[in-house]
Design a protein around this nucleic acid. Sequence first.
DNA 1: ATGATAATGATAGCCGTTCTCAAAGACGTG
DNA 2: CACGTCTTTGAGAACGGCTATCATTATCAT
Lengths: 145, 145
Amino acid sequence: MTWTDTTLSRLRETTGRSGGARRLVVELLGRQDCCLSAQEIHDSLRDAGGRVGTASVYRALDGMDELGLVQRVDLGDGVARYEPVHDEGHHHHHLVCDDCGKVEPFEDPGLESAIERVAGGRGYSVAAHDVVLRGACEDCRQHRD
Amino acid sequence: MTWTDTTLSRLRETTGRSGGARRLVVELLGRQDCCLSAQEIHDSLRDAGGRVGTASVYRALDGMDELGLVQRVDLGDGVARYEPVHDEGHHHHHLVCDDCGKVEPFEDPGLESAIERVAGGRGYSVAAHDVVLRGACEDCRQHRD
DNA sequence: ATGATAATGATAGCCGTTCTCAAAGACGTG
DNA sequence: CACGTCTTTGAGAACGGCTATCATTATCAT
Ligand SMILES: [Zn+2]
Ligand SMILES: [Zn+2]
Ligand SMILES: [Zn+2]
Ligand SMILES: [Zn+2]
């Protein structure tokens, strides 16, 4: 069962109805393996001929976020991004290039266990964690003076 | 030499002038050991009788950020916070309580070295890294049914 | 087909941040 | 100290992402 199908049915279960705008958002997100902003989703759907309102995009994203079907990603530029949660125990974090803006996902078990260790030692029950590494990607480092 | 003094003189070196608004922002930040939003700074200065404009607060923060005297912190609520960088090799990250909103700093060498390891293995030169852990603090966990 | 009810989308509003520009302040010089 | 120049300052307008509103449309059990 693909993420798109799972997501559509989970959403229908929850609200009892299914509409066209939400379906388009879910299908587009299902084709991504890293994050997209609401604006990017909106533009992409418009370019493909759909007539989807801004509000519907945000509503769809919000609904999926509440069900944990999507991960909200904040890269610090004031724009919220979202990416599908394909597998509960298998997520990634992001490297952002300060020069060209490229966003690159990475996975690292060592980092994950370090985070778990911190959480455990603090009386905190940690439900989520965000990690963003910022710097210069390989391309940009070579093209610099 | 205190952070406030260092910062004021670094700023004066850079711009050649020193004004009153900037000084107030620096002195307030120098008394903090964790992050404050621009709004909080603005309000705090106003309450203390200063007549500081919003733009001046943002300008001061921006200038310090460019010189690396201050760390910009993004907790994902759409508000930028800033905290003094007291020591180059001695920074902290943040635990945020989803219920009460409390922000708690923590330091963890294990987490830092895990991040360095990731950066090293990717051809990336990482200039900065942000980590935010989100969950329920000890207080809020007890008060929950 | 019908009607109750949820989804949709244009638009207005909100809020943090940035821009603009005239007035005030800082500093080197006479 | 007074002057002139150049920076800083602050009120308010503008901007951009996001949310709220509400009349219209679509969905689905009956
Ligand atoms: Zn991603
Ligand atoms: Zn992780
Ligand atoms: Zn802090
Ligand atoms: Zn709490």
